[in-house]
Design a binder for these strands. Structure first.
Lengths: 218, 218
DNA sequence: CTTTTAACACCTAGGTGTAAAATT
DNA sequence: AATTTTACACCTAGGTGTTAAAAG
């Protein structure tokens, strides 16, 4: 049972690193609370539907595949986490990030100074020192195995190249922007240039997102 | 202009590393001589056809993508260089290994002990110390842009999954083994188990091989 | 003449949402 | 009834040898 990618991916720009020093950049995803949610169609929002039953696992760490690299390398590009995979299988052995469906989560980005002879790999816990952690409120999302909100489905079909087969040629860019404008998570100063890059940097997930790894091969 | 992969790939098993130490494993490809070759059909062999005109470039280093890793990691798997790409474009800026067509080459494998705060990347030259270099005579090959020897073409079509579209369902495994047995580079003690893995470990290239990056996209 | 380039059909490999089936 | 799993058609992305045209 394979995981599925997060889409849109978390993408960050990093400043203020020391160009010559080596860094790891990593992501993990932490629960926002211990509540289980359900989506209420007639009010178009997620409502608390009970408490989490399972005991919280230690979040797995996804180390960006370019790690380790120099501060110079990290700063001159957008750092994209588009290859991270999510699963709801708590017995996962492929290093995917394990989440529970119908819960709220918040990605965290960790910038880790590389100390001499230190080697970080997937699923290792964070070092005690030399770590800076960042979260962005607009990246919060709710996990699902089946989409609850049709607008999210449309958003993904229209933006994810792998879903091109489901695109409706009749629906154009204008109506898509209308969908996006109905969400609060995209800052005003980005709206004029709604291209793929800006869209992803802002990580639009809103009220539903990132279906967990339901099947695929494996 | 993109490069093309080497096929079959160079694959090595490594022993005797210190399990806890970190190593880079890298490959480069050096010219065997300064001769230009042509293939003589009626005698089925490569003959000297003149001297190399171009001045020899410093060979580029292909660092195995798993680098750096511990001796333990390297030793418990076959290390495959199947993703290295070759090109005849001496202005290449994609980090591919640059070779001249119609010349003889020999791959080299470098095992590089990682010193503290040392970071090796593509196209960097080899460190002065802590490097062990290995070559295997049976991996020597001649570069081409168009295959000269029909047996090599058959071999690649039958063995490379990406060339499946050219396979002739009428030609079976027995006749393929006959082709292979006509070459000297496969040791006797491997013949009973001619599966894909053994085939590749022995890197059969013989009298012609690895067409340079002639086109593709890019 | 020989060798190289470019476009191409045909593959491998893997990421989509969908719909029906299975599970809880 | 709600949620999850599975198989699937349809994509992206990229690695093959072939062929005809281009280059030398």
């Amino acid at each position: 049972k394979a995981g599925r990618r997060m889409f849109p991916a978390v993408r960050v720009k990093i400043k203020g690193l020391e160009p010559a020093k080596q860094y790891y950049i990593a992501m993990d995803i932490i629960p926002v609370d211990s509540k289980r949610y359900r989506y209420v169609y007639h009010s178009s929002q997620w409502m608390v539907a009970g408490n989490t039953e399972q005991s919280p696992l230690t979040p797995r760490l996804y180390v960006h595949p370019d790690s380790p690299a120099s501060g110079e390398s990290w700063m001159k590009q957008v750092v994209s986490f588009d290859r991270v995979k999510l699963t709801n299988n708590d017995m996962d052995e492929k290093g995917h990030i394990i989440l529970q469906s119908m819960h709220k989560y918040r990605p965290r980005i960790h910038v880790i100074v590389k100390e001499v002879d230190e080697h970080i790999s997937v699923n290792q816990s964070l070092p005690a020192n030399g770590v800076h952690t960042f979260t962005f409120p607009e990246t919060e999302f709710t996990t699902v195995t089946a989409y609850q909100n049709q607008q999210i489905t449309r958003l993904k079909i229209d933006r994810n190249p792998f879903a091109k087969g489901f695109r409706d040629p009749g629906r154009n860019r204008v109506s898509l922007e209308r969908v996006m404008d109905s969400y609060p998570w995209r800052p005003v100063d980005c709206r004029p240039s709604l291209d793929f890059q800006n869209f992803n940097i802002q990580k639009p997930v809103g009220c539903s997102a990132s279906p967990l790894g339901s099947s695929c091969t494996g």
